[in-house]
Amino acid sequence: MAENKPKVATACMCGCSGCHMSFLDVDEFVKDLAELVEFQSSHVIMDVKEIEKVDIGIMEGTITNDENVEVAKKMRENCDILVAWGDCACFGGIMTMRNFEKVDKILEECYLEKSDEESVVPDDELIPTLTDKAKGLDEIIDVDVYIPGCPPSADVIRYGLEKLLEGEIPKLDKDKLRY
């Protein structure tokens, strides 16, 4: 039985985790879901070789650095249906407020002007490099399902998942759609 369960993976890019929190607000439904699907975590996107593909890939957050880009692409490669949760993933969300200014300038102001004198701007190779502009998911990869909202309510998230489990591609009507 377990073999037939659809596999779901979720990932968070540059978001606030609010969308995932809203997902947890389905409360008791989490238990039902545990029966219905198998949650693979976002590690699937870490190593494509060893991990089988998932059926549904869910992403929260904005694309703001090269790692996000990579994660998004890998998620796309490894899932059948890609779901964008929240304004951030759907349209870019609040993070795109940084697009009014050049990245270098922002970094300088945030790290040099707002910390002590010995501070430096983070640029180590072990941390990702910021993209010029913060972007919504579909500026990088194809998205199949859009569940906007900041965050989408638990009900809407649930609706989306239920539809997917029924084998339909959900589309939010005017009562469910919120930005």
Binding site: F91, I147, K174
Partner: peptide, 9 residues
């Protein structure tokens, strides 16, 4: 926008 079901741009 809601009425026209705009969920992507």
């Amino acid at each position: 926008m809601y009425e026209h079901e705009i969920d992507r741009f």
